[in-house]
Design a protein around this nucleic acid. Structure first.
Length: 506
RNA sequence: GGGCCGUUAGCUCAAUGGCAGAGCAGGUGCCUUUUAAGCACUUGGUUGGGGGUUCGAGUCCCUCACGGCUCACCA
């Protein structure tokens, strides 16, 4: 038996008192004729002649958010999924005994059902004049209490439940108490719907590919490992969808996408959660130029659908999401912001010397591609506030992308940036099985040089490609990051319902 | 993994090394159109855990746990 707090013991006693009075604290069924918003809308459309007398018949259900008792009457705020509605309880209407029952055993956080007509109070709030009420679910533990006040139309919250750790660990309490948190996840759902609507409209097919994979690939990340008992087989949780989605192009599905979970066994930060939601699509006969245009249109479409505008404020910065993002070759961006001409330094050693000359220090074992990435991340990325495509990446950090015709050292790849961080990554996909095999082998060498684990070589993927893969453009985007941007949240944990936290001993 | 900061009542926060407090929530009263309702009284603490210094530790030191920020890592 667990230890209840003093506050919980008081509520347990109230629960017993409710039972003693013949009311079930957790009845099986509830009734509801109107949501709070429906009731208010109906009243507004057909206001009674005398607004101070209860009119109509409404039954509402929801959670008690505020109680103001004044002797023999009480005002209560009820919150449901649509909003809130004030309830008015009065001894005259309910009788001494029922009124006392309400006053004595109904608490903040309880789910209740109430019926009556609507009227307008002296202070102008449309309110349900309660003729009947009952408990729907008694709350034993008090929700983190917050108080709200409306000052000049602005909501002010006092003693808000805002300790991040507590909010993430008890997200249910966070959601119950902080209405704006519920809005984040409504927006998130609309973002996913808008992405699907856009891609479906472009003739893409939504598919599902394995999360448990015998080999992992498609990105540079350490995987989570798990085990199938009966098959005596170790399996990896996928780090990307790429290699499976491209197998589908081999199979003749020309436009496919997947929205789902990726798992990366790496550091946690304001923009990294160990599991995160990714959108990837692959588009046969398209190249990265077409994918760029589709990307701009997709982001603008989502902004229209979710925000109703293409201008948004992110952490105090105004972002313009209209299509027509600048295309900045990676080498130009680095030249501008880091003052290093990477074209002039085709070898890792040469580039490293050029960087050292600028006072930029890097791991001397880095490949040239790694050095270029460091320059991009440290010097260019922070400047990319407005939506920008950085294009044309070094071949050795892009093993699944196709080389640029006429320049083997550069691949047709772009990354979309805004607000100073990477949003998406895409390329003209490599579809030459012999080149792909060579790249995999090169990557293995690079990993060895970096003293990382050797990346597994996916033979089955090469077999698929040998059957013939149409030329195609592919795309990947972090849906969590897009949600951060559109909801103006500074950390990924705010847009994931249950972000990963270290376990805590009870 | 490193650095810095933090953890005090259900929630939000105070407290020169010297009696652990406030507001809200809770309880008991008063109050039949309130809205952070109001008024009076009042309960509530292993100050994250453990160890140390000290006559005396929420406060200083060590250590562990968890979190925040940041750096590193993240083709």
């Amino acid at each position: 038996m667990r230890d209840y707090t003093e506050l919980e013991k008081i509520r347990l006693a109230k629960l017993e008192r409710l039972r003693a009075a013949g009311q079930e604290p957790y009845p099986t069924r509830a009734e509801r004729s109107h949501t709070s918003a429906q009731a208010l809308a109906e009243y507004a459309q057909h206001p009674p002649a005398d607004t101070h007398t209860a009119a109509g018949a409404y039954t509402v259900a929801g959670r008690i958010k505020a109680i103001r008792v004044m002797g023999k009457s009480a005002f209560v705020h009820l919150e449901d999924g649509a909003g809130r509605l004030q309830l008015y309880f009065r001894t005259n209407d309910l009788g001494e005994e029922r009124y006392r029952l309400f006053q004595d055993v109904f608490d903040l956080g309880d789910f209740v059902q109430a019926s009556g007509g609507l009227f307008t109070t002296k202070t102008g709030e449309v309110t349900l004049w309660v003729k009947d009420f009952r408990m729907l679910a008694k709350a034993i533990s008090p929700l983190p209490a917050a108080k709200e006040e409306i000052v000049d139309g602005q909501k002010r919250v006092y003693s808000a439940f805002d300790n991040p750790e507590a909010r993430y660990r008890e997200r249910y309490a966070d959601l119950a108490v902080n209405a704006e948190v519920r809005e984040i996840f409504r927006a998130r759902a609309r973002i996913c719907s808008a992405l699907r609507k856009f891609l479906d409209g472009q003739g893409f097919l939504e598919v599902e590919t394995p999360i448990l994979q015998p080999l992992y690939g498609g990105a540079a990340a350490r995987p989570f490992v798990t085990h199938h008992n009966q098959l005596h087989q170790d399996l990896y949780l996928r780090i990307s969808f790429e290699l499976y989605l491209k197998r589908l192009l081999v199979g003749g599905l020309e436009r496919v996408y997947e929205i789902g979970r990726d798992f990366r066994n790496e550091g946690v930060s304001f923009k990294h959660n160990p599991e995160f939601t990714q959108l990837e699509f692959y588009w046969a006969y398209a190249d990265y130029e077409q994918v760029m245009r589709l990307t701009e249109n997709m982001i603008a479409f989502v902004a229209d659908e979710v925000l109703g505008t293409r201008t948004l404020t992110y952490q105090g910065q105004t972002l313009n999401l209209n299509p027509g993002w600048p295309r900045v070759p990676l080498a130009e961006g680095i030249a501008e912001f880091a003052g290093v001409d990477i074209h002039a330094h085709p070898t890792a050693a040469g580039l490293l010397r050029a960087m050292e000359a600028k006072g930029i220090h890097a791991d001397p074992k880095s490949t040239r591609g790694k050095l270029v990435e460091k320059l991009l991340g440290d010097f260019v990325e922070p400047h990319l506030i407005q939506p920008t495509f950085i294009v044309d990446y070094p071949r050795d950090i892009s093993p699944l992308a196709k080389a640029r015709p006429g320049d083997d050292s550069v691949v047709e790849r772009f990354e979309g940036y805004m607000a100073g961080f990477e949003l998406c990554n895409a390329f003209t996909e490599l579809n030459d099985p012999l080149d792909q095999e060579q790249r995999f082998i090169e990557m293995g060498r690079d990993y060895a040089a970096d003293s990382e684990d050797t990346h597994p070589l996916d033979e089955d993927y090469l077999r698929a490609m040998r059957y013939g893969m149409p030329p195609n453009g592919g795309f990947g985007m972090g849906v969590d990051r897009l949600t951060m941007l559109l909801t103006d949240k500074a950390t990924i944990r705010e847009v994931i319902l249950f972000p990963h936290l270290r376990s805590r001993e009870e």
